[in-house]
Design a protein around this nucleic acid. Structure first.
Ligand SMILES: [Mn+2]
Ligand SMILES: [Mn+2]
Ligand SMILES: [Zn+2]
Ligand SMILES: [Zn+2]
Lengths: 143, 143
DNA sequence: TTTATAATTGAGAATGATACTCAATTATAA
DNA sequence: TTATAATTGAGTATCATTCTCAATTATAAA
């Protein structure tokens, strides 16, 4: 999806919800799509500030919530107390491998595992809604 | 392993490390082995207080750290901001299924998945150290 | 059993990420 | 241009967990 289309989609969603299109909201959206990485709220806040748009941490958090809610972003919990956000646009489901040393994050998907999760849930009479699968270790460079 | 053996093992470890055997530390150990569940620090703190032993939250946290460090307990992050602790004694590795509604926790192991994780790590040149695999959904009762 | 001493404890303060409050500002539609 | 409801941001609150440090205690030597 082009960034223009994405931006206009976002505006449409905001309007549809009776929410306003503000420079802060646009800036957060732009920041999330610009850098394909797994970003902390603080990073995004600093990146926006270091440019032209005036923004507060509160607004960054609020906008990230909207983006997650509306399917534009995904929120990750890597267990270190700081949430990460990544774009969800053109980004199908995947899980993560995280380096314990340098923090590098690699994405992976394994259909076998995805399938098995469903079976395990079924065996225990659970209706699966989400899952977290994270592998932690040392990356090539950090071993 | 008998509770007596476990207690004496714990005392041995403490002594070996130059740490003191205190009623608070014993109480935390006892609490962790008494209830096989996935306990919050606050639960353990309350349970100990509601008995006879005087203890503080700080000491519960400190002792739980020791128990995890020395292999007597396991610390879980379920993504809700409160750590859970479970006994590691006679409890081989497993992962968890968590009910989004009532919080019920079920344990599972799947050797296939365990094996695949190793392969995935290898493919990405990672030396695997730990992993988190949690399935979230609705349990039979909550659907 | 004392004594010496280093380890431990607990009350309360600190931390850090995130959420909330509310007065001032702003986007939007009439 | 105006009316108004939504948004913003500064600062405060929250909540789990960690830290501080003076008072207490476990331990081992005498
Ligand atoms: Mn990712
Ligand atoms: Mn368990
Ligand atoms: Zn690394
Ligand atoms: Zn349930």
């Amino acid at each position: 999806m082009t960034n223009e289309k994405l931006l206009s989609d976002f505006k449409d969603v905001l309007k549809k919800e009776g929410l306003k299109v503000t420079p802060q909201r646009i800036a957060v959206l732009e920041e999330i799509i610009k850098d394909k990485g797994h970003r902390e709220s603080e990073d995004i806040y600093m990146a926006i500030k270091s440019r032209k748009t005036h923004v507060s941490r509160a607004t960054v958090y609020r906008t990230l919530d909207i983006l997650v809610q509306k399917g534009f972003a995904r929120k990750l919990n890597l267990g270190d107390g700081r949430a990460r956000y990544e774009t969800k646009i053109d980004s199908p489901h995947h899980d993560h491998i995280i380096c314990n040393e340098c923090g590098k994050i690699i994405e992976f998907v394994n259909d076998e595992i995805e399938k098995m999760q469903e079976e395990i849930a079924k065996q225990h009479h659970f209706k699966l809604q989400q899952h977290i699968h994270q592998l932690f270790g040392l990356c090539k460079e950090c071993q």
